[in-house]
Design a binder for these strands. Structure first.
Lengths: 204, 204
DNA sequence: ACCTGAACACCGTTCAAGT
DNA sequence: ACCTGAACACCGTTCAAGT
């Protein structure tokens, strides 16, 4: 198992991210990355053992770009900052973002993010024994929401499609017709969801 | 745009699902599917326009296998049935399940599932205007939880890895050490999460 | 009406060689 | 120490042909 070079790793990840952002995840090939940094495909293998490790590197890159906690912020401010930053990440990098769900992240970058959330929950008064569960609850939702947006899972149901389906034997759709095709202000929806989730956390 | 044959579609989807279940999503190639049903790769293209449509078919197959609502069940029974069935689906088909997040599902199968949840929320007393948002909130979490499990996002943090990371500058991890490596009874955790979410729904 | 065969333009990755 | 060139074993998909 040869030792990997690290010098040009950031440059390679930059190129990979740019390709995915511009042309989608499918266009992210070793050959394309190589061409972008002006090198032969095989040169990449000096820096990443294979494509999977390159994708892991990309996930790490996304995670480190999340904001650190600022001193003096309240726990719900810190939680909100994390949530909104995550969502913005998905909007900025819709091609790569879903990888966060696919690859279990135990890199130091990932742990740092988790630690931030743990601390916020502790400060909120969540019992120690419940903190890890609530952390998974929150991040699962936030990641899921952001991934849904990145993949178009929400927007595809707007735009008249769903209401057109409302005939037939979908009685609840029929009843809710007036509420189905709103242009879906996802900012407001996300804010409302976060408020609901915080109600779970907040000590009674 | 030639008309597709439909006769052998179920047979093809069965084969595709079996391959993904047995050898993972990466092994699901047109060539492998063809071989499994004893046909040339090009024969598949008579039934699915391309590989993407075959994957869409697979998603549809998963959705239709979710249980219908039984008459006489309370709204939280119906919601719970959906949630647990979804999670079992992810355990039975970890390779394909994450596709549910990737592909916006507006097929009749998908709408049927959504309609079931809409009705449960209506019965729970959620105001009509809030029902679509709460539906997205619930399904995003349930799908996210099940996908996390299927992808090993949760289990990878158990098994000592996380606690080993707890040194260094991760103070919250340090404090929670005793609670980090529990073998993670995910059944109990999922149940607790659902109970918390139902508290959002249940009218005060 | 349904399927096959051969071919094309790609992949990720290996190995041995070059400077 | 770092990179290249050629090759291998795959992909999805096209087109024209077979029965």
């Amino acid at each position: 198992m040869r030792k990997l070079k690290t010098e040009r790793q950031p440059e390679i990840l930059d190129a990979a991210l740019a390709i995915a952002d511009e042309h989608g995840l499918d266009a992210l090939t070793m050959r394309a990355v190589a061409e972008r940094i002006g090198v032969t495909p095989m040169a990449i293998y000096g820096y990443f053992r294979n494509k999977n490790e390159l994708l892991d590197g990309l996930v790490g890159r996304l995670l480190t770009s999340l904001p650190q906690a600022l001193p003096g912020e309240s726990w719900d401010q810190r939680l909100g900052a994390f949530a909104w930053a995550t969502r913005r990440l998905a909007r900025d990098h819709p091609g790569v973002f879903p990888l966060l769900f696919a690859r279990p992240s135990v890199t130091p970058d990932a742990v740092a993010v988790v630690d931030l959330i743990y601390q916020a929950l502790i400060d909120a008064g969540v019992p120690d024994a419940d903190v890890p569960r609530i952390e998974r609850l929150i991040t699962t939702f936030v990641l899921g929401f952001a991934t849904s947006e990145a993949n178009g899972r929400f927007s595809a149901s707007g735009d008249g499609i769903r209401s057109r389906r409302a005939r037939g034997d979908f009685p609840a759709h029929q009843r809710l017709l007036a509420h189905l095709d709103s242009p879906a202000d996802l900012d407001a929806e996300f804010a409302a969801d976060l408020a609901d989730l915080v109600r779970i956390i907040r000590p009674v």
